[in-house]
Design a protein around this nucleic acid. Structure first.
Lengths: 213, 213
DNA sequence: GCTGTAGGTGTACAACGTACTCCTACAACC
DNA sequence: GGTTGTAGGAGTACGTTGTACACCTACAGC
């Protein structure tokens, strides 16, 4: 292996450039616009050149997810009450994802393989552990937190009740969905941050109560 | 309009048959296998005949979602403590979806338009209202509940921590993700029901605490 | 310079959603 | 019971997707 006869042409792209280009396409044209051809055009290369960097479209999506999560500070906040630490961690991913809403549909599918999401999980577990959670309780707490965050972020970017989506529901047949219509109207006074944070607080309160009891 | 000259050939399919066929394809071949051609073949009709019943593939998916939710009892439980009512409602949808796991990725996108999901929301709001929630609090409670349910169901069927997905995480590099690895091992002792229900209980505890305080 | 390697390009194909055109079968009339 | 108008169903065809394959190309090392 040490006596290599010749070295090939060096790569003209970095994975980071590829990820940036794909993210740019995603931000501009949405998830349906994220095609191999579009990313190739964005980079000024052929479509097939991308396959020297990723095995398939799925891997390209992974690259995008990772790129969005790259800017997130994944260090667990070390001081302060543990619920504040969780809130901080949650807010960081929420902000990062909010800057690129089109990645939202990709998150559930890439949840297992994404190093970024795994690092976030590790940080969240560190905070929970510091708060006193261990064993089965920690498993359930962690999963509940993840479920809420995943669900709430999706709700937020697929038409929140507080937001443009409200109008749709407010126009529902009153007779059939009286409570939904009423709730949709009341939701106008609740901002996305209050909605997201309020739900998280409910979960954190439940966790705190479990620690006490 | 009353003197119609001739009546056309009657439809040979019912929407229900179409929904059943699509659901059968979805169950058998997964979401990627749910194509117009496959559903046409399943029904023994041409592909294009489907377009007499649905405008496009998206509408076909709506039909499938509705079919899955059709069997769910959407009447809000009228007696017993309100948290038990919520648990009951949540368990019903979870069971229905669990019988057709491949629909899970469709749920977030169809959340707004699906009459079935709307009816579920109305029922959940009825229970929350009976429990004493109103105004802004009810908005936040409802949204938090929905976020948790949507998120938890997706986590459950896209590889739960307690479940087959555990193995993937348990194989993580220990040095980099010590807590995740440990949690994955501990998760082996937690069944999916305990995991799902435990998280829901945390949220319900938070809600109950809010009502008291 | 020569050369071997891996990078980049172009072509091609199967499968998808669906627009368009034609044929067909039935209910309502004489 | 034949005729007819209507909407349903079938067939064909097109643009777009991911990607397999075969080819050419440019550079590091001799």
């Amino acid at each position: 292996m040490y006596a290599v006869k010749a070295m090939p042409r060096p790569r003209s792209l970095t994975p980071a450039q590829l990820a940036d280009a794909a993210l740019a396409v995603l931000d501009r044209d949405g998830l349906t616009g994220l095609t191999m051809r579009a990313v190739g055009a964005q980079l000024g290369t052929s479509t097939m050149a991308l396959y020297r960097y990723v095995a398939d479209r799925d891997e390209l999506e992974s690259l995008v997810v990772e790129r969005v999560l790259d800017g997130v500070d994944m260090r667990p906040p070390a001081d302060g009450p543990w619920p504040d630490g969780i809130r901080e961690l949650v807010d960081r991913v929420r902000a990062a994802v909010g800057a690129h809403p089109a990645v939202v549909p990709l998150l559930p599918a890439h949840r297992h393989r994404s190093p970024g999401i795994l690092r976030w999980g590790e940080a969240a577990l560190a905070v929970l552990t510091r708060g006193g959670f261990a064993g089965t309780r920690r498993v359930v707490a962690f999963r509940a937190l993840l479920a809420y965050v995943v669900g709430a972020i999706q709700m937020e970017h697929l038409g929140a009740l507080a937001g443009p989506g409200t109008a749709v529901i407010a126009a529902l047949p009153r007779a059939e969905f009286p409570l939904l219509a009423e709730t949709a109207r009341a939701a106008g006074a609740v901002g996305p941050d209050d909605e997201f944070g309020g739900g998280l607080d409910l979960l954190l309160d439940g966790l705190a109560r479990q620690l006490d009891g």
